[in-house]
């Protein structure tokens, strides 16, 4: 009896780890392969059959991509837009999140529902009319214009995520600070903010990812001042394969880093997003 039990246990463990590893391979394989493709020579793109080990490692393709016209500018643009998006959505959204977390007020349910609904809107329905408006306002082909749309897209998420973060800071701490001589703002700055900072940083990174990856609005709203995804997308059909591989890999790298940085917050950020 004990031996059958332990055999069942071992069998269970084996299938557990086997399954887990299989799924990990499924997730990692494309990442490995695109890295392999991006770090081969340009000629190797047309080689067939391809090697599965980095036998001809080369930065030739990446060099070509980075030196292509508009790429470095687009990377810079992407970073600027993402930073503007972080700043804008946190400055606008965090106070709202705080209000939802701390106060009971008339209209709160309505606002929460509104946020929920505004996350539903397709990017297209925002970007197309805004492209038309921005043309009139001279915001077309400007990074500000793209950042505004990205803020609009990120804002509902940021409010909900920051509300969750502020709920996690006990109200008592703020109140005790008030009895110890702080006004509301001081209590927030000295007590709530330091405690919320890791969560807010994670929210900022999350916002960066939204902006860094966004392609539809960025392409529609720009012509020369492309962000990186817009740059890659607009030239997708008439650029060589190795250019695309390098571009794809380039876009993926920050994702890997950021997911690692905010791994502790994964479930809070993405998991509860729809609530």
């Amino acid at each position: 009896m004990p031996s059958t039990l332990s055999r069942r246990y071992i069998l269970g463990r084996v299938s557990l780890y086997g399954g887990a590893i299989l799924l990990a391979l499924w997730t990692l394989a494309p990442l490995y392969l695109i890295a392999l493709a991006a770090f081969s020579t340009r000629q190797a793109t047309f080689q067939w059959p391809k090697p599965f080990l980095p036998t001809d490692f080369s930065i030739d393709t990446m060099q070509f991509f980075v030196n292509s016209r508009g790429v470095l500018d687009s990377v810079r643009n992407s970073i600027i837009v993402a930073l503007l998006t972080i700043a804008g959505s946190l400055v606008l959204g965090a106070p709202g999140g705080y209000a939802l977390a701390r106060f009971r007020f008339r209209g709160k349910e309505g606002i929460s529902l509104g946020l929920l609904i505004s996350k539903m809107f397709p990017t297209a329905i925002l970007s197309i009319p805004l492209a038309v408006t921005f043309l009139q306002l001279d915001l077309y082909d400007s990074l500000w214009g793209v950042a505004l749309v990205h803020i609009a897209m990120a804002l509902p998420f940021v409010i909900i995520v920051t509300a969750g973060i502020f709920v996690g800071v006990p109200r008592d701490l703020e109140e005790v600070a008030q009895t110890l001589g702080c006004n509301r703002l001081q209590a927030f700055l000295r007590v709530v903010l330091p405690l919320a900072l890791p969560g807010l940083a994670a929210a900022a990174i999350f916002t960066f990812v939204i902006s860094w990856n966004e392609v539809f609005a960025a392409t529609i709203l720009t012509l020369r001042n492309r962000t990186l995804p817009a740059q890659v997308l607009s030239g997708l059909n008439d650029s060589p394969l190795y250019y695309r591989y390098a571009g794809g890999f380039f876009m993926i790298v920050p994702a890997l880093i950021f997911i690692f940085l905010i791994r502790r917050y994964l479930l809070n950020l993405w998991g509860n997003i729809v609530r």
């Binding site: 997730t27 990442l31 695109i34 493709a37 392609v215 794809g248 890997l256 997911i259 791994r263």
Partner: peptide, 25 residues
Amino acid sequence: YIYAIPLAISDLAAGIAWLSIFTER
């Protein structure tokens, strides 16, 4: 962490990654 990586990858980048797999050569 591994399973979550694609969270931060755009559909464009994902498409390109799979392009390197599915393309003719």
